[in-house]
Design a binder for these strands. Structure first.
Lengths: 153, 153
DNA sequence: GCAAATTCATACGTATACATATGATGCGGC
DNA sequence: GCCGCATCATATGTATACGTATGAATTTGC
């Protein structure tokens, strides 16, 4: 064992130059998304809404009655994902459901009165949240960034 | 002034102009992250790794032995999150753990032989995944995008 | 030196996010 | 008409992601 000295120097320092994790677009996207979510939770106020719950409510407000899967497509959520989101909003009575008279597979979703009131309050915060997320960028950089980001979504 | 002609039109068609969900940076970040995750799962190959599992393995490879919380900081994961990631990698024997002789609170993590072999195989795919994610952008746009994205992470 | 504050890893609860499977329903092709 | 296929909503399982709480261990502040 006296020869057990530092036999393995190389393995402890592999080729970082080749693939730097924190420079990869996937890692940066994940961190930027994390940061935005944190800002959202900080700034959304006493209205208890997650980003996806907010998205679902805003979209229903925009389009009116809509089926669950259709709402998922409009907000980029899997049917399995939107199901849980809607369920939690329904429990809080922010959303109402009724059977679609024309297609018995579908459930039509709409905002309740309190849902409407809540989303209107949340919208003010939402604009500030977008501004806070983009705050590290200069004015002229923001449009550039959004334009490029849109191409990747 | 003469009464509300278009007063009642508004409720069914609310101010979309004011806040367009799909133009908000948070929504675009979420969708871009979704797209990257899908590309990752498609291209990572028969190596069964999620993006965060891959990140943990790559980072251990880069820095050698490291405590669990420290690894979390290096890969932008909460202590609660990294705990689950490490647990799943440990079950698959891709990671080994030993007590830190200098700090009995800590557990030192390292790659096993198969962990090392697996991450080396995954690295080839990882470069292609980054390229595929950025494929919608022109060459000159990619550096711009990454530079701006880094400011938001 | 020692009490207070911090850090480490874990555990529990909630909320996306998606693959997959299922049963009910609608629709197109023949 | 009706059979095959698609769609809708749900259910289950796995994996982040994080807040909060906990107990053990270490560092600090005085």
């Amino acid at each position: 064992m006296t020869t057990a000295r530092k036999r393995m120097v190389a393995p402890t320092k592999p080729a970082q130059d080749d693939y730097i994790l924190t420079d990869q677009v996937g890692h940066l996207l994940r961190r930027a998304h994390q940061r935005h979510t944190a800002i959202f939770q900080d700034m959304i106020g006493n209205v208890q809404l997650t980003p996806t719950q907010f998205a679902a409510l805003v979209k229903i407000r925009d389009v009116g009655e809509v089926s669950q899967n259709e709402l998922g497509r409009l907000t980029a959520m899997d049917p399995a994902t939107i199901q849980g989101v809607i369920h939690r909003l329904k429990v809080r009575a922010l959303i109402a459901r009724r059977a679609d008279p024309d297609d018995r597979r579908c459930t039509l979703l709409s905002l309740t009165g309190s849902g409407h009131a809540l989303i209107e309050r949340a919208l003010a915060s939402a604009k500030a949240i977008t501004a806070a997320t983009l705050a590290p960028l200069a004015d002229n950089e923001r449009a550039t960034f959004l334009s490029l980001l849109r191409k990747l979504s």
